[in-house]
């Protein structure tokens, strides 16, 4: 039974134009078109979206949370990338 399960798709919804697509959940479907149909029926029954993306879950490449400190470490000591790092003399405006 198990090996007959329809593949899993991740569903991303754009709630209205101007916003980016956001992960909503997942659906099983035998192919891409039915994944879109299932995503519509499952996640937009109340006009929650103007656009849907679906992507096979096994095609997503994700970082490993256990490695996240090493992965993001290079950004940690670069505080000069933030505007608050810089001292601006009092009286200077529009900066």
């Amino acid at each position: 039974m198990t090996n007959q399960e329809w593949p899993l798709y991740e569903v991303f919804i754009r709630t209205r134009s101007g916003l980016s697509h956001r992960h909503a959940g997942s659906v099983h479907a035998p192919d891409d078109q039915m994944a879109l149909d299932h995503a519509r029926d499952t996640y937009t029954r109340r006009n929650e979206g103007v656009s849907i993306w679906v992507v096979r879950s096994d095609r997503i490449v994700a970082s490993d949370p256990a490695e996240s400190s090493a992965l993001f470490e290079p950004a940690e000591d670069k505080i000069y990338r933030h505007p608050t790092f810089y001292e601006i003399p009092e009286g200077v405006e529009n900066l």
Partner: peptide, 17 residues
């Protein structure tokens, strides 16, 4: 919800983790 990926790559790693 990246289940299938988790299933497949988890097998060997999981034991250690």
């Amino acid at each position: 919800m990246y289940t299938q990926g988790l299933d497949q790559q988890g097998k060997t790693e999981n034991r250690r983790d």
